[in-house]
């Protein structure tokens, strides 16, 4: 069957099936199991209302449980097991973890991830804040915002191609077609540089791609927060004789600190999972490995599911503080 046709049938089945399920299960609940008539009418309505939320939630809960909750537990289990030849798994203790920490590539990935975590969220938030503050004050600000925000729509792979062209290097004597090398030679560089192989800067050059993508996100959120600042606080500062820089750093910044933290953590999450950029641009060569790509490498090249799972657990461990913090915030808001 043609995949497009299969896709259409799947949409019809998926959407139709969901709607059918919801409608039918409600009908059965109301008409058959707890009909609102007879002597138990009040009791039946109450009982139906007790069951109904779970009818509405059921498909979502199944999908969430199967595709997100169960894998966390299963990956944890797999990280402590080894595949046995001929199928099946056996408990392997911490073998996978000891093997992982004995590999230099793992430490390289961990170290690089650490620098990614340090630099990318800070730079994206910084540039985003700058862009938000500046574009709010000019007439063509919305167009400028759109253009800075645009990389958000571009895939990591597309961005990798875009930046590979920027970093492209041609042999000495040929005309350079990458902007970086053209500028480098123009400013008096001796000979063209293959930027993606130069340690330790190549890591920075990869980070630039993600910063380029995430700045727009930071800008949009921070711009909304800046607009939400009460006008009176700024007017009062002006009356007191504060200059534009003082207003920004002493009045505005403290008032949007909560939003800055949110933006920072959101970008941190993206960084922890960064895979496509490294995969497409260097594939971890020249000491640019990161955890997510290390894990992919273990899974699908070395075919070692145990160590791959262990690497995934390391990523999970790094995410956990943000997870806890998010959940606590959400619970506080509900009260």
């Amino acid at each position: 069957m043609h995949p497009a046709l299969q896709g259409l049938i799947t949409i019809a089945l998926g959407v139709g099936g969901c709607l059918g399920y919801f409608w039918l299960s409600n009908q059965i609940l109301d008409k058959v199991i707890f009909p609102p008539r007879g002597k138990d009418i009040g009791k039946n309505i109450n009982r139906a209302n007790l069951v109904r939320p779970w009818l509405f939630l059921f498909p979502a809960l199944v999908a969430l449980g199967l595709y997100l909750a169960y894998p966390v537990v299963e990956t944890l289990r797999l990280s402590f097991s080894d595949r046995v030849a001929g199928g099946g798994y056996e408990f392997a203790g911490i073998d996978n973890y000891t093997q992982m920490v004995s590999e230099p590539k793992f430490w390289e990935a961990l170290r690089n991830n650490f620098f990614w975590l340090l630099i990318v969220p800070a730079a994206s938030t910084g540039f985003g804040l700058l862009a938000a503050q500046l574009t709010d004050r000019i007439r063509w600000g919305n167009i400028a915002k759109s253009l800075i925000f645009m990389p958000m729509a571009i895939s990591f792979v597309g961005a990798a191609v875009i930046w590979k062209l920027v970093y492209d290097a041609r042999p000495v004597g040929q005309e350079q077609i990458g902007v970086m090398n053209a500028l480098w030679l123009w400013f008096g560089g001796e000979e063209p540089v293959t930027w993606l192989t130069v340690l330790p800067w190549n890591n920075i050059f990869l980070m630039v791609v993600l910063i380029w993508i995430q700045t727009g996100f930071a800008m949009v959120i921070l711009s909304a927060a800046l607009r939400g600042i009460p006008e009176e606080t700024i007017e009062a500062a002006i009356v007191d004789g504060a200059g534009p820089f003082q207003i920004f750093f002493k009045i505005k910044l403290p008032q949007i600190s909560g939003t800055i933290v949110v933006v920072w953590t959101t970008i941190t999450l993206v960084v922890l999972k960064v895979f496509d950029i490294v995969f497409a641009m260097t594939n971890g060569q020249w000491e640019t490995q990161v955890l997510a790509n290390y894990m992919f490498d273990k899974l699908f090249r070395a075919n070692d599911w145990g160590v791959g799972s262990a690497a995934a657990m390391v990523i999970m461990l790094l995410v956990t503080p943000i997870l806890v913090w998010n959940v606590r915030n959400a619970r506080r808001e509900m009260k």
Binding site: Y67, L68, P71, V72, E74, T75, L78, L272, K273, F275, A292, M295, L299, W305, G308, S309, A311, A312, M313, I315, M316, V319, L323
Partner: peptide
């Protein structure tokens, strides 16, 4: 929850 955990 990182996608990476769900793959295997």
């Amino acid at each position: 929850v990182p996608l990476q955990l769900a793959l295997i």
